[in-house]
Amino acid sequence: MKRLVLAGVLALGLSGCSSEEPQVLNLYNWSEYMPQEVLDRFTDETGIQVVYTTYDSNEAMYARLKLLDDSAAYDLAVPSTYYVSKMSNEGLLMAVDPSKIEGFDSVDPELVNLPVDPENKYSVPYLWGTTGIAVDTADVEGDVTAWADLWDERFQGRLMMTNDMREVFHVALRVLGYSGNSTNPEEIEAAYNKLTELMLSVRTFNSDAPRMPYLEGETDVGMIWNGEAVMGREALPALEYVYPEEGTIVWLDSFVIPKNAKNPDAAHQFISFVLRPEIAALISEDIGYATPVVPARELLDEEVANDRASYPTPEDMVNAEFQTDIGDEALQVYAKYWEMLKSGQ
């Protein structure tokens, strides 16, 4: 009975939140993508409670923020690369006030003013990573250096691809010499034809934990995110992360403030907090992905900072390409070929 009353009070209380209560920051993020310690330290310092809710894909996050438009309850979200431009173009985001952000100048110049948000009007980088090739060197003889090597017959049935339409097509487009963000239907069709050859080799698609098929012993070579490669190496030291010659896929998760955020001030405060070098370093070490905050890299463990998988050298990034929003028309073309690919037609 007590709990019933509690639930009732909770339900009523929600509709009538007032400013007298302690300040709350509603953070909408991937699960376990922000260490509890960071949230605690932020609360200790500012008195602002962080409510951390989660989503399992950019698509779901986008659809919700769009549907909730007028009653948006989130103050901060963390979309990946091109979702920033998509959301800002559709008016879902509030401009970030640079005067309220401290430490923005310490962000890696390579990761600001990207085409997805030319002047960083709407977004501040949080963590970034790459999608490259994983090779289980214990089972694979000879070098694998390029995406094109995945088409090698010896990998038949031993190949893993991420379960991500854009990434898989990106690979084929690059092998054919096109941009990974192609919107040309002919190029996309060519990529589809190229991928049908690959389907025989693919053992599994996986975007939940791409390191697992390698650890399971099910696959020897294929795509992986760099952070997953680092985690996978703990259990399987032979797992190597390769930057493909045609160029790796780069992605960047950024903070954005949804248009109707209730507490944008707290959001700005939180972004500034996370940009502090010691906090950024703590996050990078805990999560396993690279921080864009340059001074933070000095504070990192030597081993982490010198790990090429996490922090690539400039040579590794030759030909690297960010994904951009390809627009609705091209998206329909991709979606059609993706269905055909998966259904074996």
Binding site: W30, S31, E32, Y33, Y52, T53, T54, Y55, D56, S57, S207, D208, A209, R211, M212, G227, E228, M231, I287, G288, Y289
Partner: peptide, 15 residues
Amino acid sequence: EILPLRIYSMVRVGL
């Protein structure tokens, strides 16, 4: 927030 959401959302770092 409920548990399955948190578990299924551990995409970036794996389960």
